[in-house]
Amino acid sequence: MVTVQESEYWRWPETIWVDESKNWQDAEVISCGIDLGSVSTQAVIMADGELYAYASMRTGTSSTASAEKAVNAVLEKIGDMTRENIHYTVGTGYGRVSIPFANKTITEIACHGRGAVYVYGNTVRTVLDMGGQDLKAIKVDSRGKVINFLMNDKCAAGTGRGIEVVCDMLSVPITEVGELSLKVDEEPEPVSTTCVVFAKSEILGLIRKGWSKEMILAAFFNAVSSRVVELLERVGVEPDFAITGGISKNVGVVRRIERKLNMKALEPKVDPQLAGAIGAALFARALYIKSKK
């Protein structure tokens, strides 16, 4: 069997962070949110509803182990906090059903809505969450309560995943594709499809025609942003508008969506990839307080 070295251009790097300026022991409620996504897992610790620490890790093959790993990583970084100190844990994301230590599970749609208000402020009304497998357009009120939402149909499934595939095809790390795609003098015509399977064949055609990586990325992101805007317009875009999930870090997609919507996306206060886990942690806090009443 022929083995070929695979490079991992598609992976996001892992991060672990703790707010050194605070002492968690001053807080009344320590809540935890875990967002177990298809590609990455985030564990967030909040002290009285303020972000205190988080870990953003790759999701492994076992959901339970991935959740454990992320929580342990963040606790280790904090140093003096143990599981017992966490009052309430909410799990969300694809793998939410298999986090045994979560007190409750809530869908990523509700969590992203709630988290978006924390990450972007309470003026946000329309949230786009673009993960590896799903595309979600969520409308929220000022507290982050979901008013309405829409998810992609089958043919737009894996749009986020498609970006990873393209990274691999072009050998460009996922952290760089966004910037690179903006380095074109003129916006090329979008690739005609966002079906990942078809787009691949089209992109291969472009590679063979000798297109630059910048141009190919621009054409692909142009198509992706059209598809996203289509979904957004179906739910109705109300300002302010924000993007959560891994794609929010891809300026190539974000700028193009903004251009098509003729609307600026809000600037995040913290890493928007954390929105789901933050929402979960905020719900965890609310649920804990209610349980004590």
Binding site: I106, I109, A110, N148, L287, K290
Partner: peptide, 13 residues
């Protein structure tokens, strides 16, 4: 998510 959106009041303080 639809059911949550219909009555998630108790998730908020």
């Amino acid at each position: 998510a639809m059911i949550e959106a219909m009555g998630e009041e108790d998730l908020f303080i």
